[in-house]
Amino acid sequence: MKMAMAWGCLVPTRRSLIGYEAATRKVLNHLGVETVDIPNETCCAPFWMQSLDFTTSLAMAARNLAKAEEMGLDLLTPCSGCFHSYMRVNHTYENHPEMREKVNDILAKADLRYDGNVESRHVVDFLYKDIGVNAIKESMKIDLGEIEIGLRYGCHMLKPSDLLNIEYSERPRFGDELLEAVGVRCKEYTGRYRCCGGLLRGTQDDVADYILHDRLMDAKNANLDGLVTVCSLCHIQHDMGQKSIKRKFGIEDLEIPVLHFPQLLALGFGYSAEEIGLNLHTVKTDGIVAKIIAGASKGGVKK
């Protein structure tokens, strides 16, 4: 299996997200998925750009899809925001056929054309559906059974469900199912499915802080070993934003490690914390990693 990768702007450039890229590359490689980066990736023109100029924004996302189409590959992205932009292109092509030509008129300026043949996928959904729980389970080298985490699906990977077409549920399960299959305990807790406020970071910081405060308190009250995220914004909020919430609201014992979904799998595949950038996260991840290693040395090593 071979996929064209669109990493988005956040994942490769944010200190606490580089490990998301590293872990995603390692996990896909470990599972036998070949990847090729979209050449000279362009901004996916996310929702706030779409709301300013929908057609031109759509053409920007279509530019990366056109590159994947040239290579004859489907597109895979770890960023929920990018995923949304790419899904929007095919969706618009199907529901408003007149937009095809409008978008292609713009693409023609760069000698490109996009005919809607690329399927866009989110990494987590791809791991669940295309690789499958069993294949992942068989690839595990150490047991992750000692930890209890809160898995956050975020908003933009799943909603609106008629566009993104993964699962419609206010309590999605597929990610939990995958992690539980490799031994992780996923805890149900209040606020788990609520928005993190990430999209207002930088534009309405105060509102973003209040929402994040509530999410972090939800997680804190749930006594988790850590949070697991599938969205770049959600990760930036919970990990990089945690320090300022701690200060702003005077919560001294706020210290919740935040891991990306593929990082947790990569640990199970036997990669070290450094190899997948866990040392770069703002909130220290040593505790949860030590707990996994200690559990594994108690007889959890599988192969």
Binding site: I18, N40, T42, C43, E275
Partner: peptide
Amino acid sequence: MGLDVDLHWDDTFV
């Protein structure tokens, strides 16, 4: 971490 330092993004298209 052994990741490409040149991100290969450019402004040609925009």
